[in-house]
Design a protein around this nucleic acid. Structure first.
Lengths: 229, 229
DNA sequence: CATTGTTTAGACCGATGTGTATAACTAACA
DNA sequence: TGTTAGTTATACACATCGGTCTAAACAATG
């Protein structure tokens, strides 16, 4: 099939002036295909034969570009992480008010949930089918660190008295929205999370004011709760 | 190995007077092994050879008791559903006050998260690695219906003005706790969820009172929120 | 005792899994 | 022009997958 190669030659040269038009590298196409299939069907459910078929690429190209499926999985997850972080950051940076910046995260979530092929958090899904010390688990840990830092920074900027506690709650609302949206196919979970976040923010502010006024007396929000477990 | 059969004969007879001591049926042991392995390592990651080895049972016994892996997966999930529903119901029924009954769910969650082998929601994990129209997806739908009915009933009993909206939020907190606890290995997520639920309940009650007082004016909780997605 | 339902061990099947090997071709570049 | 990196097609090795089959042993019951 010299036609394919002709196509490719055009693509390679075009990269200098119009990089977005060039034919994708085999590695890129493999990663795109893996992203598509792993996310929509699960990592263990998709064999490399499916991946290369979907990418329109020879098996040799996969093992030329990646050491094996593990590395492909790792790059799939880091790719997901990067794209999502970029998207969330964009949403946050479009607002100046600290409170609006917090709520922006749930609005980005809402947009994500509305996408027809939304199938939950890639890291959550990956962890659910992987061993504790796997590539998936490690990538998920990195992702979670990012999530926590994100919300802790936002909670700090918002001026909460207990930024860590506020951040924990915001993370919980984030995870809840993600999980509910997936399991119930319910994009409106983002709204529910956002609405609850507003309530939490109001109360966190209120609590800090109360704490100032009450001279250190623990507010209801901060007070210890009896837990059975 | 006649020893094995001797063992089994003792077990079978003992069933009448001391049913808890009898040797388990092959089917029971298979289901237990499947429950253990599927939950801790994922369904696709565990082959039937692993299951029968873990159960200490011959392969023929599996296909004598189940039509195939699909049926085993189905029974694994319905078994999980039943056990969890029982546990939650117990926790709820130990309280009379409607508000305490709601919070009891998050206390049961806290106890679950504290178990050393907690690895998230079996249905969430199953869905994450399964096709949209699979056995897993169907079992998950049934489970989710139960979850929603649970919280809608609780929200109604608590006397909220908008029980459906309250229920949606409680479900989101439930899912958030489950997901956060798994991904961060953070059992304290149950507390965070419980604390937030208390806040929501206060506000829901407050809102209904306000609604009565304000003669139909929408309270902040009920008001529409601008959503981007 | 004979029957019936349950369980075992193990051989076996075809399909699919990841990964390797080879030989040829293309494209870019020195 | 020759070299090298990237890519293709294909065959193959080897393990594991879900599942079938058989022959035999055991257990409970009538």
């Amino acid at each position: 099939m010299s036609l394919l190669y002709l196509d490719r030659s055009v693509a390679y040269r075009g990269g200098v002036t119009k990089p977005q038009q060039r034919r994708r590298t085999a590695k890129e196409r493999i990663l795109l295909a893996a992203d598509d299939l792993f996310y929509s069907e699960g990592i263990h459910s998709v064999g490399i034969d499916r991946v290369i078929a979907h990418a329109g690429v020879a098996k040799g190209s996969l093992y030329y570009s990646f050491t094996g499926k593990d590395e492909l999985v790792h790059e799939y997850l880091t790719h997901r992480h990067g794209k999502w972080a970029e998207r969330v950051t964009e949403g946050i940076e479009s607002h100046a008010d600290p409170r609006a910046r917090v709520l922006a995260v749930y609005e980005v979530l809402g947009a994500l949930f509305a996408e027809p092929d939304y199938r939950g958090c890639a890291f959550m899904n990956a962890i659910g089918e992987a061993a504790p010390d796997s590539v998936e688990a490690r990538a998920a840990m990195t992702f979670r660190s990012w999530v926590h830092k994100l919300f802790l920074d936002l909670a700090t900027d918002v001026g909460s008295a207990e930024p860590q506690q506020l951040a924990d709650t915001l993370v919980l609302l984030y995870d809840g929205a993600v999980a509910t949206a997936q399991m119930d196919n319910a994009p409106e979970a983002a709204r529910t999370a956002r609405r609850t976040a507003e309530l939490i923010l109001d109360n966190a502010m209120c609590a800090s004011v109360e704490a100032d006024a009450n001279d250190g007396m623990p507010s209801p929000l901060v007070g210890e709760v009896s837990e059975t477990g």
